[in-house]
Design a protein around this nucleic acid. Structure first.
Lengths: 237, 237
DNA sequence: CCAATAGTGTCTATTAGACATTATCGC
DNA sequence: GCGATAATGTCTAATAGACACTATTGG
């Protein structure tokens, strides 16, 4: 038998493969806290429960897993977040009552304002603060996935400025530092934080300033390479 | 309709889901080089080509994806490696001629001696040195997966001693350092390397020594926490 | 001037790089 | 003693922590 013959005889419908979904833990920073996007399940199983945005691969729409993630996030937020990263893949026989099931889980970050209007227009989608989530029961193993995403993001806050993608396009250093502090769960030395940013040259100074109380703060924008930059030394926690 | 009714009406065979496999990039250190385990494909597609060890989830044997990985590695090597880590998941419509396909890829490390006998007894399984692999064409996108695993392991060699799991249970510091140097592609300052190990307290001194030429070298064993330890400062490369 | 917030100066502590030096073996 | 390899001493450089200090705004 040749490969060609094999393939023309091959029919995927002859085999049962596990259910396959993608899910995303999408973070934003708003009102001085981190928030995560939750979606109320419209269908069984676990209808009515809150869970992470995600769903099945659609072979007709999606050329790749990333496409599925983009499609699902666009449905819920109206946009594709500027930072998306694969977190982990969980697959076992228990996590979904429909049977052996696999989810490819992503972490993503977005500015709150970038999707504020769209989210308010869509029913059964909301931002939940991380305090709020602690007390919730999420669908399937989504709470576990959330915890893993949060822990990964905490690690990243020690050696990168990835958390900055949860801020608006233009932000102050105090805001950036605060996102990191929320993730780490502890205050960071202001001087240390600024020194690192200076040296790494990861921000564009917009020249603009913003004032609320006290001295006006410089406004910055993330450089494109900020997503990939890693400091060689961690903050210590 | 209740959830119970929904589930009793639900039949996974009504839906077509992507093909799902696991693959592992298994490294070892032998004869002063890093080697990767390759398997000759016994079946179509790409029959006869070398690729990574892996295969389909078997819902009857495997309670989780990790179980699938253990089962597949045990088939090829006779043992379960002491270090296994999820690398990434790749899914798209192109990578497998049978259709939309997803692979969950793992990186693993093992001592060469731990599976030497079993591998020699099994046909169509071999260790390929990293120099050898550079010139090869592997099945599907396995070469890409190999490159990603190698890059991740290179990063880890800068802030952990994970690469030590590619060594025999008992090893010298020179051997450990050399694995790191091969991964980094550059010599490491001997003093820096030893200082880090001293301070982190990651090794057990066996008290034994091994001599080949020159001064006998102390023999060490990895402590169990070595897999998870991260230095707060990277080696610089 | 005061309160408030932004941003800097500067000293210490830690840790990696560089490279010279010492230690321990076989012969 | 010599060659070889293992292991250490020690100085410098880089960078984080600590915390006091200065700067810029409104009232």
């Amino acid at each position: 038998m040749t490969e060609k013959e094999f393939l023309s005889n091959y029919d995927r419908r002859d085999y049962l493969t596990p259910l396959l979904t993608v899910d995303t833990v999408l973070f934003t920073y708003h009102e001085n806290t981190l928030k995560v996007l939750l979606v109320e399940r419209a269908n069984y199983p676990q209808k009515g429960q809150w869970g992470l945005p995600g769903g099945f691969v659609d072979e007709n729409c999606d050329a790749s897993l990333d496409d599925t993630v983009y499609r699902k996030l666009k449905e819920k937020t109206g946009v594709v977040p500027p930072y998306i990263e694969q977190l982990c893949t969980v697959g076992n026989s228990d996590r979904d009552p429909r049977g052996w099931s696999v989810t490819v889980c992503y972490t993503a970050l977005i500015a709150h304002q970038a999707c504020e209007a769209h989210i308010e227009s869509v029913h059964s989608v909301k931002w939940a603060s991380i305090e709020e989530i602690e007390g919730m029961t999420l669908a399937f193993d989504h709470y576990q996935l959330y915890l893993q995403a949060r822990e990964r993001l905490r690690q990243k806050s020690l050696y990168s400025i990835v958390p900055g993608f949860a801020l608006p396009e233009v932000f102050t250093l105090a805001e950036l530092q605060h996102v990191h502090e929320v993730l780490i769960g502890k205050a960071i030395q202001n001087k240390s934080f600024r020194r690192r940013l200076d040296q790494a040259d990861l921000l564009i100074d917009t020249g603009e300033k913003r004032q609320e109380r006290g001295r006006p703060a410089n406004l910055y924008r993330l450089k494109s390479q900020s997503a990939d930059y890693r400091f060689i030394r961690n903050l210590e926690f």
